[in-house]
């Protein structure tokens, strides 16, 4: 899917966009519905998300993110804008005050992390409990305290599961980074 997104960015390729839209729009829709909004609102946000994908594809950096990860960030931000009526503060990669990585090419050493396939394999290594906390947080958009209530476990347990899951992902992907 990342190749299609690159084609949209480079050539405004309508067929490539159609492939992306057919794959991702039902999935992004399900994500937005999970986050508790009425259908009309969901369609508005969904159209907004894909208008951004179509018009801002030139901002996509395939060395930094998979197409899925990039589309996830757009959907996440639009949902915050629309449903919570909040701004989403983000750092600006063009900001002169941005602290660059002092190691030459250092920011590129993490490319392997973005390969969705690698992340998918790594997610499968996690325990069911760890994966469930990540899913509730990233997919359903539940805060840690809401997850604690929902699963009937202490807040500290939710946090430690998320932390352990992330540490495990780092290790799994770190060790795989050598092989790629």
């Amino acid at each position: 899917m990342s190749l299609q997104l690159i084609a949209v960015a480079k050539d405004r390729d309508r067929e490539a966009f159609e492939i992306l839209f057919r794959h991702f729009s039902p999935r992004v829709r399900a994500y937005l519905v999970h986050r508790g909004s009425d259908t009309k609102n969901v369609d508005d946000i969904l159209q907004d998300v894909f208008a951004t994908v179509w018009q801002k594809a030139n901002l996509y950096d395939h060395q930094r993110a998979s197409a899925a990860a990039w589309i996830f960030t757009i959907a996440r931000n639009r949902r915050i804008d629309a449903l919570r009526n909040e701004r989403r503060p983000e750092f600006d990669p063009q900001d002169p005050a941005l602290q660059r990585n002092p190691v030459p090419g250092g920011e590129e050493t993490f490319i392997a992390w973005q390969h969705a396939k690698t992340v998918r394999i790594a997610l499968d290594v996690l325990s069911d409990e760890q994966r469930e906390v990540l899913r509730l947080s990233f997919y359903e958009g539940e805060s840690y305290s809401a997850i604690a209530v929902r699963l009937g476990i202490p807040l500290g347990t939710v946090k430690s599961r998320a932390r352990l899951a992330f540490a495990r992902l780092r290790t799994e992907l770190g060790s795989k980074r050598e092989d790629l």
Partner: peptide, 12 residues
């Protein structure tokens, strides 16, 4: 970026 890659996989 790793965290957002997780979000991408979950949507995908």
């Amino acid at each position: 970026e790793l965290a957002e890659a997780v979000g991408g996989v979950l949507i995908d």
